[in-house]
Simulated scan of single mutants.
Amino acid sequence: MFGRQKSSVTVIVKAAFEEARLRGDRRLGTEHLLLGLLHHDEAARALGVDLAAARAALEQLDRAALRMLGLEVGELPDTPRKHPAVPATALTSSARAVLNQAIKATTVKTRDAEVPRHLALGLLAQKSPDPVAQLVDQLGIDRAAIRARLA
C-alpha cells in the first residue's frame, strides 16, 4: 500500500522531530511519530487524516489536559515560537519501541517501502494512556478498518 519514496524512514523521523520542536516539546513521543508519518502522503491517505487535523486534535488534547489542572489557555499566536531542536536521543521509551519494532519488521531491502506501514500499525496498536492512542481516538480513526487495510 505504501510505495517507495526517497528515504521515507528518514523523512518521517525528521518530520516527527520537527513536529516536536514546533510544539516546544523536549522529547519525541508516539504522537510526534504519528504527525511525522502524516508527512508521508500515502500514509496520510491510508489513515484517512491530514496533518492539519492531527495538529488541531493534539492541541485540543493539550488544552483539555491543562483545563483538568485548572489552567485555561487563551488564543495562541499563529506563528510558532522559536524552540530549540529536540535532541536525537530524546525519544520516549514508547516511541523508541514503536520505531524499533517497525524497523525490525522489515529487511534492509524493503525498509523504505515497508517501515511507514509497520509504523502505522505499531502506532495504532498503542493503548491509552499513550498519547498516540488518545490522539487516534480524538481523530476518530477506526483502528480495525485501518489494520485490515494495511495488513
Results as ranks from 00 to 15, higher is better:
residue 2 F to M: 09
residue 2 F to E: 02
residue 2 F to I: 13
residue 2 F to A: 08
residue 3 G to N: 07
residue 3 G to R: 14
residue 4 R to W: 09
residue 9 V to G: 03
residue 10 T to I: 05
residue 15 A to I: 07
residue 15 A to Q: 13
residue 15 A to S: 15
residue 16 A to F: 06
residue 16 A to S: 12
residue 16 A to T: 10
residue 17 F to A: 15
residue 21 R to F: 00
residue 22 L to R: 15
residue 25 D to N: 13
residue 25 D to P: 01
residue 26 R to L: 02
residue 28 L to M: 10
residue 28 L to G: 01
residue 30 T to Y: 00
residue 30 T to M: 01
residue 31 E to A: 14
residue 32 H to F: 04
residue 33 L to Y: 02
residue 34 L to S: 05
residue 36 G to W: 00
residue 37 L to F: 09
residue 37 L to G: 01
residue 37 L to W: 04
residue 37 L to Y: 06
residue 38 L to G: 06
residue 38 L to A: 04
residue 42 E to K: 02
residue 42 E to H: 06
residue 42 E to S: 10
residue 44 A to D: 08
residue 47 L to F: 04
residue 48 G to M: 07
residue 50 D to R: 07
residue 53 A to L: 11
residue 54 A to D: 07
residue 54 A to S: 11
residue 54 A to P: 08
residue 56 A to Q: 13
residue 56 A to Y: 06
residue 56 A to L: 09
residue 60 Q to V: 11
residue 62 D to V: 04
residue 64 A to N: 09
residue 65 A to D: 10
residue 66 L to P: 03
residue 66 L to M: 12
residue 70 G to K: 10
residue 71 L to C: 12
residue 71 L to T: 11
residue 72 E to W: 00
residue 72 E to Y: 05
residue 72 E to D: 11
residue 73 V to G: 02
residue 74 G to S: 14
residue 75 E to L: 10
residue 76 L to I: 03
residue 76 L to G: 04
residue 79 T to N: 01
residue 80 P to T: 06
residue 81 R to K: 04
residue 82 K to C: 02
residue 84 P to F: 02
residue 86 V to Y: 13
residue 87 P to D: 07
residue 88 A to V: 06
residue 88 A to Y: 01
residue 89 T to S: 14
residue 90 A to C: 01
residue 90 A to L: 03
residue 90 A to Q: 06
residue 91 L to E: 01
residue 91 L to I: 03
residue 92 T to L: 11
residue 93 S to E: 14
residue 93 S to H: 14
residue 94 S to I: 11
residue 94 S to E: 11
residue 95 A to G: 10
residue 96 R to Q: 11
residue 97 A to N: 07
residue 98 V to G: 00
residue 99 L to F: 14
residue 100 N to K: 13
residue 100 N to T: 08
residue 102 A to N: 08
residue 103 I to S: 09
residue 104 K to E: 14
residue 105 A to K: 12
residue 106 T to P: 05
residue 108 V to H: 12
residue 108 V to T: 12
residue 109 K to F: 07
residue 110 T to W: 04
residue 111 R to T: 08
residue 111 R to V: 08
residue 113 A to I: 00
residue 113 A to H: 01
residue 114 E to C: 02
residue 114 E to G: 01
residue 116 P to I: 10
residue 117 R to I: 10
residue 117 R to N: 03
residue 117 R to A: 10
residue 118 H to W: 06
residue 118 H to S: 01
residue 119 L to W: 04
residue 120 A to D: 13
residue 120 A to I: 08
residue 120 A to C: 09
residue 121 L to R: 11
residue 121 L to C: 01
residue 121 L to T: 00
residue 121 L to Y: 01
residue 122 G to D: 14
residue 124 L to N: 09
residue 124 L to I: 04
residue 124 L to W: 08
residue 125 A to V: 02
residue 128 S to V: 12
residue 130 D to I: 08
residue 130 D to A: 12
residue 133 A to G: 10
residue 133 A to K: 03
residue 133 A to Q: 02
residue 134 Q to L: 10
residue 134 Q to K: 12
residue 136 V to I: 15
residue 136 V to G: 13
residue 138 Q to P: 00
residue 139 L to K: 04
residue 139 L to N: 07
residue 140 G to Y: 11
residue 140 G to S: 08
residue 141 I to R: 03
residue 143 R to I: 13
residue 143 R to P: 08
residue 144 A to V: 10
residue 144 A to N: 04
residue 147 R to K: 11
residue 147 R to P: 00
residue 149 R to E: 05
residue 151 A to F: 03
residue 151 A to I: 02
